[in-house]
Design a protein around this nucleic acid. Structure first.
Lengths: 262, 262
DNA sequence: TCCTAGCATCTGGTCTGACCAGATGCTAGG
DNA sequence: CCTAGCATCTGGTCAGACCAGATGCTAGGA
C-alpha cells in the first residue's frame, strides 16, 4: 500500500503518501490508519519519523489519534478546525488592525446577508427567529448569553448563505473582533438600551432576509457595523469603513439608483 | 474525586508556549528559536517531544527549520503557504466546494478592486501597469511567468486596497484556486487567444481603478471570474456564482428586484 | 448458563542515546 | 592576508525501552 521513503525529509514523504491516500478516497472519514508500529514497517522508517508525520496530519485535521485503541489513528478529514486555528494565528501574527477586521467583516457579513436573502429556506428563517428570540429573552445582565444568541443568529445566516468557506472565515473574524474589542473598548455595548437597539437591528435584518430583499439585508449589516464599531475608530479609520458602508455606495459599488440616502 | 495533575500531551504544551511567544512578539520574524537540544533543556522534555512540537509549528508556517545552521529554527510567521495548502485539502476532502472558493474569491476580489479604485496612488498604479506589461510581454509558452505576472497584478491591487487581512486571505484563496483548477480543468486557459483576453480584462480593470470607477472595477472582477471558472461548474453551481455576479445585481446587493428566485 | 473480575496485549506518548549529513565558523598553514 | 581544513554545531533519523490507558479475551464465580 505504501512505498518506502527515498527523497527529501522522510516524514514529508510519509505525510504526502497518507495525505494522498485520504484525498483520493482510499481512506474515508471514520476509517482507521494502521498503527504507528505498523506504519513503521510499511514505510521502512523509524517510529519517530512516522510520529512526526502523524503530528502534521493531525495538525491539518486529517486524522485524530487516541491512545489505547487497538485500531490506530482515526481518519477524520475535518479540516475546518485546523483551518480556523491557523487563520486565528495569522490574524495575530500579522497584527491586523481593528479597522481592517471590521472592514473585512463588513464585506463578508453583508455578502452573507445578501446570499441568505436569496437562498434562505423556512428552516433557516426559523433558526434566525429563534436566535432573535433568545437575544430578546436573556437577562439584562447576562451579556454572555446575549453574545451567544447573537453568534447563533449570525451562524444561522451563514448557514443559509450556503458557503462553507465563508462560514469558517466569518466565524474566525467575528471571534477576533470580539477579542479585540473586549480588550480595547470594554464600554457598554450590549447592555441597556444598546441591547434593545441590537435586537431591533437584528429584527430588521431578519425581515429583509425573510422577504428576500438582499440589498437591504446587506446594507443593514454594513450600517450596523459602522454604528457599533465606528465609535472606537479614528476619523481616518472611519472613512475607510464608510468607503464600504453605503451611505452613498454599496459594498462593491453599484451606487446605481438606490441608496442615495445622503 | 482525584483529578490527575498531569495535563494533556507534552508536545501540545510546547507548541502552545512557543506559539504564544511568537504571537505576543517575544520572537519576531527573522529571529531564531533555541536549537532543539536547547529547547529540550528549557522545557525538560525529550527531544522527540520537542521535535513533534516543531513539526506542528512548521506546518502552521510559524517557523522554518534547516539543518547545519548554528542558530536554530527560524521564525518565519508567514502562514499563507500552510493556509492555502490546508484550503486545498479541505476542497479535496469536500469540506469546501470549488464553487465556494470561487464565490468567495468573487466577493473578496471585487471588494479589493472597489477599495483600490478609491485609494490607489500613482505608485500603486505604476505597480499594476508594470504587472500588466509583464503579462503581455511573456513568451506565449511560458505559462509559469504569465501566472507570476498575474499574481503580481493582483498583489498590487490588494496593496492599494490597504487592508492587511484582505491581503492575506485573498492571497491564500487565489493560490488555492490556481492549484485546484490546474488539476481540474487543465484545458487551455492562459494560452493563445485566452491569454490575450486575460490581458485585455486586466487592462480594463486597471483603467477602471485608474479613473476611480470603483463600481466598474468591482463588476469587471466578478464578470471575469464567472467567465473563467464558470465553465468548470455545473449549472446549479453557476447559478450560485451568478447570484453574486452582477449581470443585474452587485456583490452586496443594490439591484433589488432581481431576487425573485422563489 | 451468564456475568464479571482480571490480565495479556494492544495503542499512543515519552525518553534516552546514538549516528549521519550538511552547514558554520574558527584556526592553522600557506 | 587569504584559504584550506577540521572541530563543532545543526536538524534528520533510528533503535530500544518504558509508561499509562483502553481493549478484548478468558477464567473463575454466581
Amino acid at each position: 500500500m505504501f512505498t518506502p521513503v527515498t527523497k527529501g525529509r522522510a516524514f514529508e514523504s510519509v505525510v504526502a503518501q497518507i495525505e494522498a491516500a485520504i484525498y483520493d478516497g482510499r481512506f474515508k472519514t471514520g476509517d482507521y490508519l494502521p498503527s504507528e508500529r505498523a506504519l513503521v514497517e510499511q514505510f521502512s522508517v523509524g517510529r519517530s519519523t512516522v510520529r512526526e508525520a502523524l503530528r502534521i496530519l493531525e495538525n491539518m485535521g486529517l486524522i485524530k489519534t487516541s491512545p489505547g485503541s487497538h485500531k490506530g489513528p482515526r481518519v477524520s478529514a475535518s479540516m475546518t478546525q485546523g483551518l480556523s486555528r491557523m487563520l486565528n494565528g495569522a490574524v495575530k501574527v500579522e497584527q491586523i488592525s481593528l479597522v481592517d477586521l471590521v472592514q473585512y467583516r463588513m464585506m463578508t457579513g453583508s455578502t452573507a446577508n445578501f446570499l441568505a436573502a436569496h437562498l434562505r429556506t423556512a428552516e433557516h428563517l426559523a433558526e434566525m427567529a429563534e436566535a432573535i428570540g433568545l437575544m430578546a429573552g436573556t437577562e439584562p445582565g447576562d451579556s454572555e448569553a446575549f453574545a451567544r444568541a447573537d453568534a447563533q443568529f449570525h451562524a444561522a445566516i451563514r448557514k443559509a448563505a450556503g458557503n462553507a468557506l465563508m462560514d469558517i472565515i466569518n466565524n474566525v473574524i467575528e471571534d477576533a473582533i470580539v477579542d479585540l474589542v473586549r480588550d480595547t473598548v470594554d464600554s457598554s455595548p450590549r447592555t441597556g438600551q444598546v441591547r434593545a437597539e441590537f435586537v431591533r437591528t437584528h429584527q430588521e435584518i431578519y425581515d429583509a432576509i425573510e422577504r428576500g430583499d438582499a440589498e437591504a439585508a446587506a446594507s443593514l449589516s454594513r450600517h450596523s457595523l459602522t454604528a457599533v464599531y465606528g465609535g472606537a475608530l479614528s476619523p481616518e479609520e472611519r472613512r475607510r469603513l464608510e468607503l464600504l458602508d453605503g451611505t452613498a455606495s454599496s459594498i462593491a459599488g453599484t451606487t446605481s439608483s438606490t441608496a442615495s440616502t445622503e
